[in-house]
Design a protein around this nucleic acid. Sequence first.
DNA 1: CGAGCCGTTGAGGGGATTCAAGCTCAGTGG
DNA 2: CCACTGAGCTTGAATCCCCTCAACGGCTCG
Lengths: 241, 241
Amino acid sequence: MAIVALYRDDTRHPQAQACAACEVRSQALFGVLDDAGLDRIHTRIASLDLAPDENVYGRGDAGQAVFTIRSGIVRFERSTEHGDRRIVRLAGRGDLIGQEALLQRPYADEAIACTPVQLCRLPRHLVDELAAATGGLPRELMHRWQSALDAAESWVADLSTGPARRRLLRLLERLTALTEPGQTVWMPRRDEIGAMLDITVETASRMISQLRRDGVLALAGARHATVDGKALALALRADAA
Amino acid sequence: MAIVALYRDDTRHPQAQACAACEVRSQALFGVLDDAGLDRIHTRIASLDLAPDENVYGRGDAGQAVFTIRSGIVRFERSTEHGDRRIVRLAGRGDLIGQEALLQRPYADEAIACTPVQLCRLPRHLVDELAAATGGLPRELMHRWQSALDAAESWVADLSTGPARRRLLRLLERLTALTEPGQTVWMPRRDEIGAMLDITVETASRMISQLRRDGVLALAGARHATVDGKALALALRADAA
DNA sequence: CGAGCCGTTGAGGGGATTCAAGCTCAGTGG
DNA sequence: CCACTGAGCTTGAATCCCCTCAACGGCTCG
């Protein structure tokens, strides 16, 4: 894990410039802050780069920071006492993760990079100070929480319901939604798909092979694929009947 | 649905007395308010009583209020386009539900009474005013959101993972946790169990019969049962192996 | 008392798992 | 350079768990 201090004092607030230029700022937590507000938060935000399968934090860790995802995909997983794990949610560009740290609670899940991931690390105290100073931040935080809740509930309804094929189709929908337009879709390892959908690696592999034959999916190198949106929608409709 | 105005002005703030005497106040949203704070919120909180299968609100409704559960169990469900529904979470005594209304978002799920339910209805504007006036309330709200998120994620990990028998055992764990000590456990209809665990009514029935034979469970009248905690824990341990 | 809802149980079939073998491919060391 | 190795992916065959279809009993209620 590489940690880089983004913001320094060597010129007049270049840090604010950096944040102002940040490509996810409008959708990120501090979108509500004006440029003056950005001045105050320099030198305390760190940028991290994680490789796939590196973890952002672990369940139970006493967290001191929340994170904004600048790029990449992060998974949240929980494992039972007996070693079997289950992925309960995904997060992507613009999402805020680890919010429970703001409440001085330990992190609720393992958060692990799926793809190469770029994060901004925001110390808890910084967010506390900003929340006290600015009116809009608590409301923005509540929006984040609600979004996470919605994602978790729809994970139950969409990805934990029905036969394996339908679950996989819905997963593909989500993965394409997490992808920048024009990019190839990130394709999880088969055992990751298993942990997302509660199926075995063999079933995951079989379903993917089937979708390839159906023209929904075309593998494109390791861990990537292209998805035919029309065929996907069609398959979902046919499948539900 | 019966709506009763709890608080009237005929004597000196009996409303505050009622809230002060409320049995869930310490765990409820306004536990952070002092008695003086309670004075301000009279006449605007309504008490509702719902019968089983009455719904608190519907998905997509433009909500104007949040609710505190004083007693009973509420389920949250989502249904796909094609009529099949899935229960994604339960809430019980002391829980706050419908929080998305505070963000002026439509309700994310159907919220439906499982048992007879007693609610307090808190208008959005009231919560807004209190949040502006008192320091602790936003933080308390964030705690509520985090609890809901945790419940939704563990619903994936516990109740949507593994074979039917294990899911049912874990559901029984939760149902006993939602029950006041000394009370009998609420037993959902078989089709509700199906919607919670993504199994059919027949499978649910078979599993329950099996657990009865195993001494984990004893039905006690319509929609109620007693659960042998030790046998349940034992069954869960044996089952995981 | 018949109708309908809810729960239970059985028989049969199907989808997912389990067990097993072979494949590709990247990394390693002879 | 290339066999060797192991991880990840795929496919097949057999088994099993759960679903589907069906019938029946208890219960409430019009």
